[in-house]
């Protein structure tokens, strides 16, 4: 670990802490500022929502929080470690062990069973086939899919698909669960069920969760809302004031 990661500001209580993150995309000679100033902090065990209209930069922020992308400038400490300067392989390892992703469109391997999908992050963690099979069974059981282990995605409903994805996100016991519009492709009832699972994980396991959404009903079920507008983060109160 570098000296930056041991500075006082980087030591938890924050699981996620960003400081003036900028992300500028350049194609040809045109520079597009997707994030102008994203500064936020999330405490362990918090369940927060990031809200904003489309084009506000929330997808970009989500990608940076998930270490799928690097900021152009600014700092990001994930569980006390400054990650903006890490190599690609190190970022892969951080994603593998620290972050669990839940996507709007589920993104499961179509030719693999629910069990195999949940095993996937453990495959890249180098866990033995036997151990990861056991773990995947337990996780699918915990999201109520113990009876669907061998089913493929095309044999499952939307709500079930998202529950497989949640089980997959939990596979390597991450420090942070990142959900991008997790209810966006679901009917209202399934959406509520999924949000119940998130809340339960948060309460029972103390899971830190960041949910990116533009659905106010979803945001209302979180502890706190961070609004992002024109690439800048504000607290909900500030946003309302503005």
């Amino acid at each position: 670990m570098g000296p930056e990661s041991t500075t006082a500001a980087a030591i938890p209580p924050w699981i996620v802490r960003t400081e003036k993150i900028q992300r500028v995309f350049r194609s040809h000679d045109v520079a597009t500022v997707a994030l102008a100033d994203a500064t936020l902090a999330v405490k362990p065990g918090e369940m927060i929502a990031i809200m904003g209209p489309s084009g506000s930069g929330k997808s970009t922020l989500m990608a940076i929080l998930g270490c799928l992308d690097r900021p152009t400038s600014g700092s990001y400490w994930l569980a006390g470690r400054e990650v903006t300067e890490l190599s690609d392989d190190e970022l892969s390892s951080v994603r593998n062990r620290m972050v669990g992703f839940v996507f709007q469109s589920f993104i499961l391997l179509q030719r693999s069973s629910a069990l195999e999908n949940v095993e996937l992050p453990q495959v890249y963690a180098g866990i033995s086939p036997k151990a990861r099979r056991e773990r995947a069974k337990t996780l699918l059981g915990s999201v109520g899919l113990g009876h669907r282990l061998g089913h493929r995605p095309n044999e499952l409903s939307g709500g079930e698909l998202q529950r497989v994805a949640i089980a997959r996100a939990l596979a390597n016991d991450p420090k942070l669960l990142l959900a991008d519009e997790p209810t966006g492709n679901l009917d209202r009832k399934s959406g509520i069920e999924i949000m119940d699972i998130f809340r339960r994980l948060n309460l029972e396991r103390g899971m830190t969760e960041v949910v990116v959404t533009h659905n106010a009903e979803v945001a209302a079920r979180c502890d706190r809302v961070i609004v992002i507008q024109d690439g800048r983060t504000r607290s909900e109160a500030e946003a309302v004031d503005a």
Partner: peptide, 16 residues
């Protein structure tokens, strides 16, 4: 491509 993106998101390194 999406599968590759997913695998990388879940922790696959380039060499994987």
């Amino acid at each position: 491509t999406r599968e590759i993106g997913l695998r990388k998101a879940l922790g696959a390194r380039s060499r994987d």
